[in-house]
Nucleic acid binder design. Structure first.
Length: 649
RNA sequence: GCUGCCGUAGCUCAGGGGUAGAGCACUCCCUUGGUAAGGGAGAGGCCGGGAGUUCAAAUCUCCCCGGCAGCACCA
């Protein structure tokens, strides 16, 4: 057999007989590399060590030191090993798919009896047994027919369905972890023992639809996480614990911000602290919008179905609307109303009052609009997904020529707002036409091009989400992540060529003729509820002073200092600082602890020394020490810091 | 909506077929203490709601309601 030449990453060339495997090359380079090797790369293709190499190639060996490749393989092999463990424990279980995801993997199974949390321990134990066997991972290429026959014989209908749905007729790769077999693209580790037995953990069981379609059967999904070593696993689990502490639902309780109760699922009862935070944010947004040329309006929340019929919501969105009926006995005629699920149709009504000229455009109508949507029970999540919420909504009525400019202007506003609120980066998704949509393809071409060009002109990174646009137009979504990495859509900008026409919005153009304006739906924060949820988690409750609902607590150390405490509070309040007195009969340690846990940014402690010197002892949240300062100095410092970023010099 | 788990005092949770428990919070008393929990006493619950099984249900079963995780959905 002819020799082949392998070129290593350092440029060294080695000759081997054709058909040699990566494993053999690794062992030839050094005995230790032979042991440490987990996979290889042949001409840039991530590959198994066991695959024969037939031609001259660039060649590279991966070991556990190559983090990206190692984690991919560990998680992927762990998925297979878990599936094998499950089938060994419960042979009637049918396997489906098990991909690698962030931090780990999942595998979906079909089994009559659902898995329980306790089963996870059993499965983990079985997995470690398989790992300890250090059984080789082998692979073969089969043609489709053979594979389908094999799975039919083994009563694995999901695998058959998978193969049948793979386009083309290329051959299939089959893998064996010891005796256990799975269809897989690969690559895989060399043997089961290469998965670190102490660096993985099965996390949870959940239902998941086969192929992500709710019309299909629900399968049992098991989630696992895996790392290269025990320390990394521990660090990850620790990170999760820390993230849980900043969960906005937890902080909402400890900071006394809000609650939600059974009688109004998905609706928020804002407490004084939370409402203060809400108002501070709303006041800030109001100033930013006015500065950007928006006109604030306010429109009804309960609106006759006629308007929703005209807008198309009655047909397309009714199942998500809260419908109200007037009791017939007490009404002259039966009217069916709906709580507005969005503000757009109402804004068009405001626009439609009076004849508009092209000189009026762009017309930016803004509303902190209270909306209600009947969200499905399983989708609600604290403040993040609620049924009653307030959008920082606005609709920009403009000409087609103005879309790009308005889009740019909006994204600049949004970036600046997010930065002021502590978010330096965010994700942008550009969603294009969905299958079910209103409007002609020409209109969609135009709308999509306008948005994409605007975002490109600003040179911001974005991803395209094909088919995820609204039924009336394409959109840009702006997303941030919560404490444990779940992504939430906040800001949005949606072009709409449909609604203005449906609701007969018009303007008189330069040519003296009537034209239909374009409508840009846009929200910067999205909804106050969701944004505050993300904001709470982002700051872990430790807000900058200007946002903190409780800014300063002035605490007495001895009751003889109460008079000075109250005086200090008065002076701070006179300057607009949210200050409270704590003159309770408790020790200063107790007060410091309590207000620290309540995330109050500044504690001013006052004892007899401060009374005599007209000073306070200032302690910042998270600091160990404190410093004694004159009252004027403290007031000036806190006032400067409590000034919202848009009002600073 | 679907799968699984959960619902006990204001909060965090223990218990579990036969007088409802703890810590914190709350009220009162003692204590005036210098930067993350001083001490004592007291009050507080139809164990999410309804039905069933049982001599007996907070506990077991079923049905609702709500929550959590994931899936689906998300203008």
């Amino acid at each position: 057999m002819a020799d082949i030449t392998l070129t290593l990453p350092d440029g060294a060339k080695r000759s081997y007989p054709a058909g040699i495997t990566g494993a053999e090359v690794a062992a030839d380079i050094s005995k230790s590399l032979g042991k440490a090797a987990i996979a290889c790369e042949i001409n840039g293709k991530f590959s198994d060590l066991s695959i024969p190499i037939d031609a001259d190639s660039d060649f590279r060996i991966f070991t556990m030191k190559d983090e990206e490749q190692a984690l991919e393989l560990i998680r992927h092999d762990a998925a297979h090993i878990m599936a094998r463990a499950v089938q060994e424990l419960w042979p009637d279980t049918k396997v489906t798919i098990g991909p690698v995801i962030k931090n780990g993997w999942y595998y979906d199974f079909d089994r009559a009896e659902p898995f329980h949390e306790d089963d996870l321990k059993l499965i983990e134990k079985k997995m470690r047994e398989i790992i300890n066997k250090r059984e080789p991972v082998t692979t073969e290429v089969w043609d489709r027919e053979r594979a389908i026959k094999f799975y039919e014989a083994n009563n694995e209908p999901y695998k058959v369905e998978l193969i049948e749905s793979i386009p083309g007729d290329e051959d299939l790769r089959m893998y064996w972890h010891g005796h256990w077999q799975d269809l897989c693209r690969g690559p895989h580790l060399a043997h089961t023992g290469q998965v670190p037995g102490d660096a993985f953990k099965l996390m949870s069981v959940a239902g998941a639809y086969w192929r992500g379609d709710s019309n299909n059967a629900m399968l049992q999904r098991i989630y696992g996480v895996a790392f290269r070593n025990k320390q990394d696993l521990k660090a990850y689990l620790h990170m999760l614990e820390e993230a849980e502490k900043r969960d906005h639902r937890k902080l909402g309780k400890t900071m006394d911000l809000f609650h939600i109760q059974e009688e109004a699922p998905g609706m928020v009862f804002w407490h004084p602290n939370g409402w203060t935070l809400y108002r501070v944010l709303q006041d800030y947004m109001r100033r930013r919008q006015i500065a950007d040329g928006y006109l604030e309006i306010n429109t009804p929340e309960v609106v006759d179905r006629k308007l929703w019929e005209a807008s198309g919501h009655w047909e397309k969105y009714r199942e998500n609307m809260f419908i109200t009926e007037i009791d017939e006995e007490h009404a002259n005629e039966k009217r069916v109303n709906a709580l507005k699920p969005m503000n757009c149709p109402c804004h068009v009504q405001v626009y439609n009052q009076g004849l508009k000229s092209y000189r009026d455009l762009p017309l930016r109508l803004a509303e902190f609009g209270s909306c209600h949507r009947y969200e499905s029970s399983g989708s609600m999540h604290g403040l993040m997904r609620v049924r009653g919420f307030t959008q920082d909504d606005a609709h920009i009525f403009c000409t087609e020529d103005q879309i790009a400019g308005e889009t740019k202007k909006f994204i600049e506003l949004l970036s600046s707002v997010y930065k002021d609120l502590g978010f330096d980066s965010f994700d942008i998704k550009f969603s294009t036409r969905p299958e079910v949509r209103a409007g002609s393809d020409e209109v969609w071409d135009q709308a999509e091009a306008a948005l994409e060009n605007a975002i490109k002109a600003l040179d911001l990174p974005y991803e395209v989400d094909p088919g995820e646009g609204a039924f009336y137009g394409p959109k840009l979504d702006f997303k941030l992540t919560d404490a444990i990495g779940r992504e939430w859509q906040l800001g949005t900008l949606q072009a709409d060529f449909v609604l203005p026409e449906r609701l007969e919005a018009e303007y008189i153009g330069e040519d003296g003729q009537k034209h239909t304006p374009v409508m840009l739906h846009r929200a910067t924060l999205g909804s106050f509820e969701r944004f505050l949820g993300v904001l709470i988690e982002n700051y872990a409750g430790k807000f900058p002073l200007w946002l903190a609902p409780r800014q300063v607590v002035v605490a007495s150390i001895v009751s003889d200092a109460d008079g000075w405490v109250n005086e200090v509070v008065e002076r701070l309040r006179a300057k607009g600082i949210r200050a409270e007195a704590d003159t309770r009969n408790e020790k200063i340690n107790y007060k410091v602890r309590e207000h620290s846990m309540g995330k109050v940014p500044v504690i001013l402690a006052v004892g007899m020394k401060e009374v005599e010197e007209k000073t306070v002892s200032m302690r910042r949240l998270g600091d160990k020490g404190s410093k004694v300062l004159g009252i004027d100095e403290v007031v000036a410092e806190l006032v400067a810091e409590a000034t919202p970023p848009d009002l600073r010099d």
